[in-house]
Amino acid sequence: MAKPKKKVTSQERNEFIWGWIFIIPTMLGLIILNIIPIFQTIYQSFFKTGDFGRGNIFVGLENYQKMFGDSQVWQALLNTVKYALMEVPVSIIISLVLAVLLNRKMKGRSVYRTIMFLPMVAAPAAVAMVWRWLFNSDFGLLNHVLGTKINWISSPDIAIYSIAVIGIWSIIGYNMVLFLSGLQEIPGDYYEAASIDGATGFKQFWHITCPLLSPTIFFVLITRIIGALQVFDLIFMVMDRANPALIKTQSLVYLFYEYSFRQKNQGYGSAIVVLLLILIMLVTVFQMVGQKKWVHYN
């Protein structure tokens, strides 16, 4: 398509230079904060790390061998996947419905939108502390109101669901805003035409909104799965170390933190996080391929 040996005009050269100048800060940030650490982490996972990053000893695949035999890691993997499977679909469905409802002309629309988005503004640590108190089995509001005595966050059978509830609650607003922006890109003509043809609200939602919103849904889905697989702060803040349910709720990132920063075994911690990296890459590739079947780009 491009003609060979086309003379570069000064404007083109200018654009080229300025283009680079504009993206360099972002690229530097990405390289220094993300790309280099990726390789450092992978590199580190082959070492038995010494104190304060000194005196690392190369141990080859030993960390990985240990990891594959470590039932804690598999349990954490299961917990992580379980959490993602709960958080992502439920939060997407709820926020999609909310977005559709709040996309109409109505009184107090911006107030509702703000309220829904508020959890996103609050610091995750503060959110977790409040929920920790709500869930408290002895003094918590939830048990008090319901008149029950359920160990929401310390019973190994249900703690992971309680954590997921917090996760869903905190992320709904963010998803909703993305969906709202997606909804506003859909031209109103489609709905008018559908109304004339006699399509009801639900039919319109299913046959117009969903397909036209599918790129946004896909974007939210893929970013949220990645985010959910990296869940850490909620578990870290809500679950005490003495909590008997910890083993059934700790995620891979939590385990990584435990080994890297508490037990100072950074080599092993890195191996765990490489496992997570591979998991995320696989899931993401799978989704990128699968999207061709259901995402409509006009």
């Binding site: 990405l30 904060l33 993300n34 790309i35 650490p37 990726i38 450092q40 982490t41 970013t223 990645i226 985010g227 990296q230 850490f232 990132v253 990584f256 890195s270 996080v273 997570l276 990296l277 995320i280 890459m281």
Partner: peptide, 8 residues
């Protein structure tokens, strides 16, 4: 890219 490395 950004997200998968937030952990590390």
């Amino acid at each position: 890219m950004t997200a998968s490395l937030a952990a590390c």
